[in-house]
Structure formats: C-alpha cells, structure tokens
Simulated scan of single mutants.
Amino acid sequence: MNAKLIKTGKVIDNKEILAVELTNNKGTYVKIYNYGAIVSKFVVVNADGEKQDIVLGLDDFEDYVQTDYLENYPYLGAVIGRYANRIKNGEFSIDGVPFKLAQNNGSDCLHGGLRGFDRRVWDILPTIDPSVTLQYLSPDGEEGFPGNLAVQLTFKLTDENELILDYKATTDIPTAINLTHHGYFNLSPKGGNIGSHIHHMPASYYLEQDSNYVVTGKLVAVEGTIHDFLGPKPIAQDWNAQEGYDQTYVLDKEYGTLTLASETSEAESGLTLSVYTTEPIAHFYTGKYINVRNAKGGKDYHAFEGFCVETQHHPNAINIPAFPGTVLRPGEEYHQTTIFKIGLTSI
C-alpha cells in the first residue's frame, strides 16, 4: 500500500489544497482532500472484477467550492465538526456559562454552523504508517464554540479493505464536541436509487425528533415501526417514499467498544459495506435533500441516490443530560474510531 500527495493548484485561507491518494494490494483506491477531509473517491473491485466508485462526489476540487453546489449543500464526503447534526436553537451551556451558535438550519445549528470543519483547510502531518493524518486547529470562539480545539483525523486503508478513521482532539477550555464523517455511499454499479440495497442495523431503539429533525431526548423502540433494521431488509421496504430515512439509531452495544454499526449490500455489484464504530449511535440518512448538478462523470445526483451512516454521539446531547456526555475538558482526549469495510457477498 502507498500514500501519494497531489497538488490541486488551489489555495484557500492562504493554505495549499492537496489531495492524498491511498491504495492497497486489493486494487482499492481512496482520494482525500485536506479541505474538509473530503473523501471524494472510494474505488473498489466488485464481484465481477470491475472497478467501481462507491461514494458520491465531484470530479474536480474547485467544484466543491462553487456557489451552486453550496446553495444546495449536501456535505458530500466531508468531516463534520465541531458538532454533528443539530443543536436545538443553536445554544447550550457548560458549567452554567451560555453559548450561542449560528442558526443555520431554521432556528437550530446544523453540522457545526455556517462554516464548520467541512469547509476548513486541514494541515497534513507526517505519518509513519501508510496512512495520512490531517490536523485542524479550531480557535476559541469559532462558530461560537468555546476553547482552542486541536483535532487530528487519521485515514488508513488496510489490505483487508478497511478504511479506518481515527479521531483525536484536545481543548484548553471546556467545549462541546461531536465529530462524524458525511460520506454518501451507493453500491450499485449503475448508481441511482438506493432503495433496493439490503440494510441491517443492530439498533433496538431510535431517537425521537421534532419537526426540524432535532433529537428530543426520548428513545423509541424500533419494534413494529418502519425503523426496524434488526433483520436485513431492502432500504425502501418500509420507508415513506417521500421522506426516506433521516434518523438516529442507538446501537445495541457496550459504550466505547468497537462493534458493528451497520451492514449494507447490493446484489448486482456483490458488494457489502460494513461499518464498525466505537460511537454509541449511527445516524442513517438516505439523501432526501440531494440535489447536485454536474457531479462525477457529468451526472446529476438526485434524492435517495446515496446513503450515509454517520457514527457519532447522540445529537443535541449537549442539551440532554441523560445522554452520553459531549463536553471535552482540558486534560482529556476525545477519541473515536470508525471503520468502513468493503467485502463481497458473492464471487
């Protein structure tokens, strides 16, 4: 396996935009930008021996910063921080001190605010293993969050066809943190609607949401609902065809252990994507709001043409004391690991 740096010729915030290419001996290839830690390509060999790109993305880097893309911004393949998903009313308190964030999704704060980690230039650090480590230093007050936060995200592509994402962070002031990665997957060789993909998620409960998809604090059993993925089933089997899924699931696991979060397969390609994580929840999103023109190969992306498994802590947990804590304090280290593993269901 090897890692290769490629210059894009672009500069943002006085920093050079670079692409990192990781390859392994299985023919798998991943392309990552240091802008937003965007995974723009994830090429694997399917059951027919054909190379297939399984993530939604754009052909050229400059397309990720174009106005028309950002107007219907789907966060294609980007890291999310400081705080994934929605924070109610864009506000929270730590130790009795209130903080106010941008209300960039109705009255709520979504995915870190107006310009989160997905639109920042990360530094590329030297690494010993065949991997790449990106670092971003988020200053105190950025997007309203307290504390100087140092974040490192390491991507490692193994010869077992695992793309490992390992996150670490430290702060000098107590702050709220909840990181994830927003990759959109489609395992079909032809792309298109992902409703026929077979999906399994070991989660007996999901989190109730209000009308703006903000978690309320209530857990609801999946049994007898459209949200039951305890047994594998087609994604579209029970869904509301106009809404799809945009729901947070509480994984059946011991807190902090690295276990299966989901498994998704597609018959024509013979590919299976298994997601493992140390995080307590996975947010399953089937792309209702995807609307991207002139994406890879000149294609347009439409609703329900990609799915996300966003591993993280409970959304809005900073405002819900009963949920696992998302406050990071000086002297502590935030750490989470998520693995995207590719396998074959047929050969």
Score class of each variant (00 low, 15 high):
171 T>C: 13
176 A>K: 06
173 I>E: 02
338 T>A: 14
138 S>I: 08
338 T>E: 09
33 Y>F: 15
132 V>K: 04
3 A>S: 08
159 D>H: 11
134 L>I: 03
172 D>E: 15
235 I>Q: 08
111 H>G: 14
91 E>R: 07
158 T>R: 06
158 T>S: 12
326 T>A: 11
6 I>Q: 12
149 L>N: 07
246 D>M: 08
219 L>T: 10
189 P>F: 00
262 S>L: 01
218 K>S: 14
328 L>R: 02
159 D>Q: 12
271 L>K: 07
254 E>P: 11
316 N>P: 02
100 K>P: 02
196 S>I: 12
343 G>L: 04
315 P>I: 05
91 E>M: 11
151 V>H: 03
309 V>M: 06
140 D>S: 06
155 F>K: 06
144 G>C: 09
305 E>F: 08
31 K>F: 08
156 K>R: 15
235 I>D: 05
245 Y>P: 02
71 E>A: 08
314 H>E: 13
56 L>D: 04
76 L>H: 06
113 G>H: 09
184 Y>E: 07
158 T>D: 13
70 L>E: 04
216 T>S: 15
34 N>F: 00
10 K>W: 14
230 L>V: 03
96 G>K: 03
342 I>T: 04
35 Y>A: 01
248 T>C: 10
150 A>Y: 07
179 L>R: 03
28 T>C: 10
55 V>F: 05
84 A>P: 06
